[in-house]
Design a binder for these strands. Structure first.
Length: 743
DNA sequence: CTAGGGTTAG
């Protein structure tokens, strides 16, 4: 087995000999009469025994590559040597025949029970009498093996140099080192591999294998070695080059990969570099969103006439999309389709390219453009839309809030006989849930189960989050169990969903139980998990459990982040422990964490709760003027509510104007707070104005709004205005119709 | 079955 593979490799090696003679291919086409199959042993021996130069002529010239087999059939080393002498002494010297005959003699020797001695004899014989003939690969291999065994380092190196004058000095010195330290076997192995492929399996194979335990070569050295080989016109094959680049990029060594590819490109150009190798580097650059270098590489490819493939453009378009540079992606795409100046690249877009682009369009909210590409695909035989195409579009329409269109696309998909996948299922389940149609989502899931499609962890995560979101914890737990029994393995995300849902619902005992399950399953809590748990324990006023969590975090090395600090500061503020809050903030700053708008909100709320609205306002103004933290809706809501409750509706109203100036959008909570304030002050006209503004701002009144307004407006006989307001129209009074005209 | 591009969940 081993011998056979070695032989195969050596056969392959022939092309590297100076003659570039390719024996196995030529025999049939050029000299059918002497094909090895037709050459019987007797015939061969007969021919050789006659030693008639004219009769031998075909074997000495056109078909000299058969000589090794013929010599082997002589079955006698002395006879083989005689034949070598005979050839050598001929006036008309057949150099190539001598090379092959010598190979035959070596083969004979290597099969001899005392092979080592006979091989050495032939080596000496060659040195004295045949030094001017070149060696075939097999000859070189056999000789090197025997010299290695004999520890004849100098002869080995001479031979090696003779064979491969371009071999690099670093490889030679490695070889020398191996011989010196007595690792003859390793040295032979190295030689073997270098012979096998002059580009050096050693060099290339090593890079492919090494990752963590990094051996003799640093990546940079490998680049040097490969480049050196290239300088001598020996290039790695496209596959190995690609593999090396992929490995380097995966180890986040884009710079080294870039150098490697450019070394080979500079020395070998399009002869040595194919699109695939460039693709590997492009993908690596894409991972770091380095579009600039990607463009440079594309330009270089064009300059060197390395023909890009459809994958090349796939990588480029994908990364342009991910960088939200969708228009540039479309430009590339149009170029492929030959739009514009007939600038055809000779690459046809395929399904994946279409899908990439459709997904990119959907992700920036241009799903209608995506839809037009879907229609275009249907007209092309080569790129029929597949499940991924529909998945991208369905997700796009779901995220755009057009659940109806998404469902329509699903039926279209079924009509076109494109089989939905589990991703289709998950996308629609998520879309339905996010639109409050959890029940429909469950129905759809059941329908798909009936069709034999199983849910995945993603399906269950979506449903569990949805049921937690509507406070139906029992149903969420039920789906968790179903997931386990259906054979899905839970991951960290699904545990997080449950823990988060239970914590928000205040069911901390259940949340803790899930934490134990999570730990049993071999997962650890991450910072997000700890944060929801801490928040839950804070809400339940269980400081001892909070400290427990914090201690655990410290023990296992999960550092509190700004969310953790905000949660704690907010809790301390609510219980009025300003001293601890201040201490905590000091530590937060020491840890290098900058206060966020949530931190300010927590402090402001704390002062508001203490009825110290003046202090709250001061902090707010300081935040706006000195920090780079822009205020958000929540902060305004806290302040507006507090000002109203403290008899300062005027100031609250001016804050609402401030919001408008700063471009902070009020929400229903904002309006509820201010409406309550103006009601308590019986400012009816102001209430109507605010109601109209609420409609402009697209804030839907909720049950709290109704509670504030109904009784009041009914009492003052303005219930009509409230009816219009609820339907989403401004009240048709003279004062308010003016506002709507100006609007 | 030699490399290289596309979709879902906290």
């Amino acid at each position: 087995m081993l011998a056979q593979s070695k032989l195969l490799r050596l056969r392959h090696h022939h092309r590297l000999l100076p003659s570039r003679f390719s024996p196995l291919r030529r025999c049939h086409s050029e000299c059918p009469s002497s094909s090895p199959a037709e050459l019987t042993a007797t015939q061969a021996v007969e021919v050789l025994h006659q030693w008639d130069f004219d009769q031998l002529r075909p074997f000495l010239f056109e078909a000299s590559h058969h000589l090794p087999q013929i010599i082997v059939r002589l079955n006698s080393i002395p006879k083989a040597v005689d034949f070598l002498n005979y050839l050598r002494d001929k006036a008309e010297r057949p150099q190539q025949a001598l090379s092959y005959a010598f190979e035959g003699a070596l083969q004979l020797a290597s099969r001899h029970p005392n092979s080592q001695q006979h091989l050495l004899m032939l080596h000496t014989y060659r040195k004295s009498y045949l030094s001017n003939i070149s060696l075939t690969a097999k000859s070189a291999y056999l000789l090197l093996q025997c010299l290695g065994k004999a520890q004849m380092l100098d002869d080995s190196l001479l031979l090696f140099n003779e064979l491969d004058p371009s071999s690099t000095s670093s490889l030679i010195s490695k070889l020398r080192g191996l011989f010196k330290s007595g690792r003859t076997h390793d040295a032979l192995h190295l030689l073997d591999e270098m012979l096998d492929d002059f580009t050096g399996e050693v060099v290339f194979g090593e890079l492919g294998r090494r990752d963590h335990r990094g051996r003799d070569f640093a990546d940079e050295d490998i680049v040097g070695l490969v480049t050196k080989q290239c300088e001598h016109g020996v290039f790695p094959d496209a596959f190995k080059l690609t593999q090396m680049i992929t490995t380097l990029c995966r180890n986040r060594k884009n710079v080294v990969a870039w150098e490697l590819l450019h070394g080979v490109m500079r020395l070998g150009g399009a002869v040595a570099v194919e699109a695939a190798s460039c693709n590997a580097l492009l993908a690596g650059l894409g991972r770091e969103r380095d579009i600039q270098r990607m463009n440079i590489l594309m330009a270089e490819m064009e300059e060197m006439r390395i023909k890009p493939s459809v994958v090349t453009f796939g990588i480029l378009v994908n990364n342009l999309c991910k960088a939200r540079r969708i228009d540039e992606a479309l430009e590339v795409f149009d170029k492929l389709k030959g739009k514009g100046e007939g600038n055809r690249v000779g690459v046809e877009p395929d399904v994946i390219l279409y899908n990439t682009l459709i997904d990119g369009l959907c992700k920036v909210g241009r799903e209608d453009h995506g839809l037009s590409l879907l229609e275009e695909m249907k007209t092309k035989k080569q790129c029929r839309p597949n499940a991924v195409t529909y998945n991208c579009l369905i997700d796009g329409f779901c995220k755009a809030g057009k659940i109806g269109k998404a469902c329509k696309l699903y039926s279209q998909m079924i009509n076109e006989e494109v089989k939905p996948t589990v991703v289709t299922l998950n996308t629609l389940v998520d879309g339905l849930c996010k639109h409050g149609k959890v029940h429909r989502a469950v129905e759809f899931f059941n329908e798909m189960k009936g069709k034999g499609l199983k849910g995945s962890t993603v399906t269950y995560t979506t449903l569990i989050s949805a049921f937690c979101g509507v406070n139906n914890i029992d149903k969420a737990m039920q789906y968790f169990d179903e997931m386990l029994s259906s054979g899905c393995s839970p991951d960290a995300i699904i545990y997080y969903s449950l823990i988060s849902g239970l914590s928000i619902a205040g069911r901390m005992d259940d949340a803790s139980a899930v934490v134990s399950k999570l730990k049993q399953a071999g997962f650890g809590l991450d910072i997000a998990c700890y944060n929801v748990l801490i928040s839950g324990f804070c809400k339940k006023k269980k400081p001892e459990r909070v400290y427990e969590m914090l201690e655990e975090m410290e023990k296992i090395g999960v550092k509190p982040d700004i969310v953790t600090y905000n949660t704690l500061v907010s809790y301390l503020g609510k219980i009025g422990d300003f001293r601890s809050a201040r201490k905590l903030m000091k530590r937060m700053l020491e840890e290098g964490l900058q206060p966020s708008v949530v931190t300010y909100g927590a402090i402001i709320q704390a002062y508001c709760l203490k009825k110290n609205v003046g202090m709250a306002m001061m902090i707010f103004e300081k935040m706006c003027s000195t920090s780079k933290v822009p205020p958000n809706t929540v902060i305004y809501n806290i302040l507006i509510d507090a000002l109203c409750k403290n008899n300062n509706v005027e100031k609250a109203i001016s804050l609402m104007d401030d919001m408008k100036i700063k471009g902070v959008r009020p929400n229903t909570t904002t309006y509820n707070a201010i409406l309550k304030g103006v009601r308590d002050k019986k400012m009816l006209q102001k209430a109507f104005e605010l109601m109209n503004r609420m409609i402009e701002d697209a804030c839907r009144p909720d049950y709290i709004t109704m509670e504030i307004l109904t009784e009041w407006l009914d009492a003052v006989g303005e219930i009509e205005k409230l009816k219009h307001f609820v339907q989403g129209y401004p009240a048709p009074s003279p004062a308010s119709s003016q506002t709507s005209i100006s609007f």
